[in-house]
Computed example of a mutant assay.
Amino acid sequence: MAQKDFTITKVMTKKPKPDDQELEFGKHFTDHMFVMDYHIDKGWYDGRIIPYQPITLDPASMIFHYGQTVFEGLKAYSTSKGDVQLFRPDENIHRLNRSNERMCIPTIDFDLAMEAIKQLVSVDKDWVPKAKGTSLYIRPYIIATEPYLGVAPSKQYKFIIILSPVGAYYKEGINPVKIAVENEYIRAVEGGTGEAKTAGNYAGSLIAQEKVADDGYAQVLWLDGHEKRYIEEVGSMNVFFKINGEVITPALNGSILPGVTRKSVIDLLKSWDIPVTERRISLDEIKEAHQKGQLEEAFGSGTAAVISPIGELAFNQVHMVINDMKTGDVSKRLYDTMTQIQYGDIEDPFDWTIRV
């Protein structure tokens, strides 16, 4: 039986809360955190909610040397009825365990992880912002803590959850952003760790983003690591293209992260009878569709930004403007519908939300 009777130690003095209207992404943190330990001889044990505080690790902890870690990202929303609800936390927990398996980290009992998220959000419920477009970002993660310098899976870990009240991820909001195609660096390859949500994937992607930021590009479009022809992700998001009435997204191939928002977009499109296809799509195909006037929309999808329209793609001195740098009808409908479900403004026909 998984432990769910967590001990709760509350802060003596609460932090001042930032103004909802001035929230940025990931800069403020709530009063409490969840921590649970693992030892190969004991399994997961001692789940506890404690005041938010620094963690102390041995300098030889394996996380520092071999990067054995996974993380997740989901959100809690304040509804118009005064409730707080989560959006598809079950999908995040399942993906966390798939990442665990890839990174040789022990899996977490599903019910235990769900209860930890619910209880922590409940304890810090007054941190869930209420202004439009804001939410409480939830970051569960696991790190290897065994002090050992041999290259092998750790025998000790910590499972931690922290919370952060956030505003919009991109300052542009639902307005289209400019994206540069990356043809030098590789984000991930099939058989690697691209389908796992692990820190090294993101560290390795930073150089490409830094390279184009000064030229006004919000992110980069990643190509496959074998031929550098086929589109994979945009920044840290999944990507969709609407071509001649059909929405196309790269098929999951082992190097692409299976996004929860990606899955939700596909479910919504199918429910609207809008053709949606998961398959390989090349940059040449995108270029040809643009030349023929058939590239109607492009957008990224992810937990942080939900839907981020792409207004321009740039590569090899070619600048493809999409939909006159305007947000497309499908992108807008997806964003509006998903956020309305998340905030409880419309009925949730998919049972995606869970009340805390």
Rank of each mutant, 00 (worst) to 15 (best):
I117H: 04
V128I: 03
K118R: 15
M114Q: 13
D124Y: 14
K130S: 12
R98H: 11
D109T: 14
S99K: 07
C104F: 04
C104T: 07
V128L: 01
R102K: 09
E101R: 01
V123N: 10
I105V: 12
L112T: 15
V123T: 14
E101W: 00
M103S: 11
W127K: 06
S122T: 15
T107I: 14
A113P: 06
M103W: 10
H94K: 13
I105S: 05
R95T: 08
A116W: 06
I108G: 11
I117N: 02
N97E: 09
V121S: 04
A113N: 03
S122L: 13
Q119C: 08
I93E: 01
D126N: 12
E101P: 00
I93K: 00
M114C: 08
S122N: 13
I117C: 06
N97P: 09
M103Q: 12
D124T: 15
L112Q: 14
W127I: 12
I117D: 04
M114E: 13
C104H: 03
P106D: 06
V123L: 12
P106T: 10
V121K: 02
F110I: 05
F110W: 05
T107P: 01
D111I: 07
P106R: 06
K125C: 07
D126V: 04
M103D: 11
P129Q: 08
R102P: 01
P106F: 05
I108D: 12
V121R: 01
D126W: 05
D124P: 15
F110L: 06
N100R: 01
V121A: 03
V121N: 02
A113H: 07
Q119V: 13
D109G: 13
R95P: 09
P129D: 06
Q119E: 14
R98F: 05
L112M: 15
L112E: 11
I105D: 05
Q119A: 08
I93F: 06
L96K: 02
M103F: 10
R98C: 10
E101Q: 02
V128Y: 00
S122A: 15
F110P: 01
A116C: 09
K130L: 07
F110C: 02
Q119F: 06
V128P: 01
K130H: 07
T107E: 04
M103H: 10
V121M: 02
K118H: 15
V121W: 00
L120V: 13
K130D: 08
K130R: 09
Q119H: 05
E115D: 14
V123E: 14
L120Y: 03
W127D: 03
V121Y: 01
Q119R: 14
K125H: 10
N100K: 00
M114F: 13
N97A: 08
W127A: 06
K125E: 09
D109M: 06
I117R: 02
R98Y: 03
D111K: 09
T107S: 07
K125L: 14
K118V: 15
E115V: 12
I93Y: 02
F110R: 01
V128Q: 00
M114S: 14
